[in-house]
Computed example of a mutant assay.
Amino acid sequence: MDGAPTPRDPFLRSRGMKIPKHPQITTGRIRGAIKGETYERKECDAVMRMVQDDDVVLELGGGIGYMSTLIATHKKVRTVHTYEANPTLIPYIRSVHEANEVTNVTVHNALLADGPGEPVPFYVRQNFLGSSMDKSIDEDSIVSTEMIEQRDINAVLAELKPTVLVCDIEGAEAHLLPAADLSCLRVAIVELHPQWIGQAGVQAVFDTMHRAGLTYFPKASEAKVVSFRKGW
């Protein structure tokens, strides 16, 4: 009808995907990066170059579901398993998958560790993108504490047999990856956090990849996002 208000689009559009608008997630800088297709650009570029049809992908650090959706909608992968510790992000990740008719991604609200362990506390904050396992950061903003399951990374690798690892776990890469048998991988894409893990942590990641038969691949690496592959 003439003069009727136009319904607002509930989605942002990015790299051919529909990203549901959310009052706490798709705001400010994140909104601009999603719309401008610069959100996690280096990691996206590496994934698009390295992931192949029929791959099994293990993603550590699911974030807002952007990367797993990109992989599932742009590559004919067999499956993606996404691990995200932040429980408040899980419903949103699933909403991103649903909006893009993604059916081959399994989301796990769990932490991978260097062995089996008891559940660990995760501190949910008012701005839940700031939620973390570190209680000391802005304690006044904590609204709840959730206990998050820990799973043995080697048991998960043995069960899933992934061919691709995509890892962005805010510095935990320096101690988790060296504990893992990554020999099943064809490709690994890791966002390093040298500001937290230092030179020794960066070296530990590179040494781990080399032990797994994976070689640094500069053509799919940029700044802190480093890619490794088997063979040349």
Rank of each mutant, 00 (worst) to 15 (best):
7 P>H: 08
10 P>G: 09
13 R>C: 10
25 I>A: 08
27 T>V: 15
32 G>D: 13
33 A>D: 14
35 K>H: 08
41 R>C: 00
42 K>G: 07
44 C>A: 13
47 V>C: 09
47 V>S: 04
51 V>Q: 01
60 L>M: 12
66 Y>A: 02
68 S>N: 12
69 T>M: 06
72 A>Q: 06
76 K>F: 08
76 K>A: 13
78 R>A: 14
85 A>F: 02
88 T>A: 15
91 P>T: 11
93 I>W: 05
101 E>I: 05
104 N>V: 14
105 V>S: 06
107 V>L: 07
107 V>W: 04
108 H>Q: 10
111 L>Q: 03
116 P>K: 12
119 P>K: 08
120 V>P: 00
136 S>G: 10
137 I>A: 14
138 D>W: 07
140 D>P: 04
145 T>N: 05
151 R>D: 02
154 N>S: 05
155 A>V: 13
157 L>W: 08
158 A>V: 00
159 E>Y: 03
162 P>I: 04
165 L>P: 03
166 V>W: 00
172 A>S: 10
176 L>S: 05
177 L>A: 00
179 A>S: 15
192 L>H: 12
194 P>Q: 11
194 P>A: 11
199 Q>V: 10
208 T>H: 01
212 A>C: 12
220 A>M: 05
221 S>C: 11
223 A>K: 15
225 V>K: 02
225 V>I: 15
230 K>A: 15
230 K>L: 10
